[in-house]
Nucleic acid binder design. Structure first.
Lengths: 169, 169
DNA sequence: AATTACGTACAGTTCAAACTGTACGTAATT
DNA sequence: AATTACGTACAGTTTGAACTGTACGTAATT
């Protein structure tokens, strides 16, 4: 058979971490951050930086920055436990909702921003090229304007599509 | 005012290329490939490698590999014109549909693949850990199995969501 | 048949992201 | 108050992607 038989828990966990990370990578996370997330997700209890470090075989510094990334995106939470000095982190509950919401949010913000920029430029164009002298430049300007309307329309449709993806509350 | 006033066509084109490329980057293209695509998209006629090269100020080799990437994803088409020796390329028509279809396709393939992998591993687990000795390992295995079901469910929902995004024909 | 024009394979370079180890500031423990 | 434990800022290193220029194979032109 192929090389994909895994016999102990450790092996299986690693395989699972790797596979699922590939999916999360599609949500814009780096492979490193994805793996960190999945590690937390599969761990029965919140973890310290040192635990993550030895679980993944990377430096504590790497864990620290990784956690910050995940935290910024709301994918990971800090947990308090009485008597424990170290910081503890878990993956947020509700995998699907968390990821979809976070991802869609990111897209919406970015797409809206870019639509704004393009619309602004479109406005400028109208002003600047009203009385264009050379025929050739005029033609080009007309095409550009057409394309820009298409691009803006593209963004509008994107936003609508994103809205429809919003997971139910 | 801010530094965002653009007075000639060249400036505006560059700004538009840059902004729209940021959107396309979210579809998994590199910034370089995005810019190449948008350049084609804004150009009134199909372009040769040399034209792209001078339009973007990059080497012809870079254009060649960029075009291949875009071509692989069905975002760009080769065009024949009588009497012209050089290869000519255009962006495919129907911006929104092209990108959505290509992107969704990519996701579907990847997600389905990873779901398959995870399901396979789940099968293996059931076999290997039926009669698990130590209690601790057993608990871990149970958790892992639970999580894996969640992950697989995650993929299933993703596929459904992707399906709903499919642009109308 | 010889030459020219074209696209791309390949080796080398540049630059940014990921990572490591050390150093430091702060909070807990003694 | 002194010491220890912790998280992170920072500088340096490694790794991979983007890019360049050269070299080569193939097809068109002469």
């Amino acid at each position: 058979m192929g090389g994909n038989d895994h016999h102990n828990l450790e092996d299986i966990q690693m395989k699972v971490i790797h596979e699922f990370s590939k999916t999360l990578e599609m949500f814009g996370l780096s492979m490193a951050d994805s793996r960190l997330f999945v590690t937390l997700y599969l761990h029965p209890s919140p973890m310290t930086l040192d635990e993550m470090s030895s679980a993944l075989g990377k430096s504590k510094t790497a864990m620290s920055t990784g956690i910050r990334n995940l935290s910024d995106q709301g994918l990971v939470e800090r947990v308090w436990k009485k008597g424990v000095r170290k910081d503890l982190y878990t993956s947020t509950a509700n995998l699907y909702k968390t990821f979809m919401t976070s991802y869609i949010q990111k897209w919406q913000t970015a797409v809206a921003e870019q639509e704004k920029e393009l619309s602004a430029v479109e406005g400028q164009m109208k002003e600047n090229f009203k009385g264009c002298v050379k025929q050739m430049e005029k033609d080009e300007a007309v095409l550009l304007q057409e394309r820009m309307q298409e691009m803006i329309h593209f963004h509008t449709r994107l936003l609508k599509a994103l809205q429809s993806l919003q997971p139910a509350p």
